[in-house]
């Protein structure tokens, strides 16, 4: 089971993670705006921007993050923002947060001028995440682990980042044993999904480019 300091770390992470909220005006648009491709894409852009701001607030609370070199902080966030956004989207779709919005969000994504070659892998990923029946703790820890990845481009002091990521991996591994005793491979599966998540960095840049061309 978790040591007292691991318990404390987990509670601290969950407390920060639960502070994440889309600003009400963004959620309102999701519900009320017209259903044109342009309007849908604008809403997605606004949600992505607002997600980055929410992500930065969560990241600033990660134990030790503020002690890192400022440029390394930027490099970590730049390198993980897209992955963290798709991880958060998987949680929103799979845990149906908030009620009813998930279907509407899917409708808007599918009618936003983004071509299917990018939409299909997105929803395949959400489905593959749903199969893992992840708890909120797993989503929160995985997001923190994604952010504190020492192998992002332009990181100067990788050791310091690794020292912050390691305890989180340890807690996640124990959580997997506690919540998914029936599947000893569960922790390995989660880490495997991180590799799949990395493919979205390229998809996302291409998708934006192709959307602009269209």
């Amino acid at each position: 089971e978790l040591t007292p300091e691991e318990q404390h770390l987990l509670h601290y992470i969950m407390d920060s993670y639960n502070k994440q909220r889309f600003p009400p005006e963004v959620s309102k648009k999701l519900l009320q705006e017209a259903f044109t491709a342009e309007e849908n894409f604008l809403i997605l852009t606004e949600m992505a921007t607002s997600h980055v701001q929410v992500l930065v607030e969560f990241t600033k609370r990660l134990p030790g993050f503020q002690t890192l070199d400022h440029e390394d902080q930027i490099a970590l966030l730049k390198g993980s923002a897209v992955e963290a956004m798709f991880l958060r989207s998987a949680e929103i779709f799979n845990r149906k947060l908030p009620e009813g919005h998930a279907d509407l969000l899917e409708e808007r994504i599918r009618n936003s001028g983004i071509s299917d070659e990018y939409i299909t892998p997105m929803f395949q990923f959400y489905k593959s995440m749903a199969e893992l029946k992840m708890t909120q703790e797993e989503y929160a820890l995985l997001t923190a682990i994604v952010i504190l990845s020492p192998d992002r481009p332009y990181i100067q002091d990788r050791d310091s980042v690794e020292r912050l990521q390691e305890p989180l991996l340890g807690v996640l591994q124990k959580i997997c044993k506690l919540y998914h005793a029936e599947n000893p491979q569960h922790f390995a599966c989660l880490l495997g999904r991180l590799t799949e998540l990395r493919t979205f960095n390229h998809h996302h840049a291409d998708m934006l480019m192709s959307w602009r061309v269209n």
Partner: peptide, 21 residues
């Protein structure tokens, strides 16, 4: 790509300021 430029601006602003409600 340009999108990353926008991303970096948003990140720098959010890191300095605070969008805390």
């Amino acid at each position: 790509p340009a999108s990353n430029l926008g991303l970096e601006d948003i990140i720098r602003k959010a890191l300095m300021g605070s969008f805390d409600d």
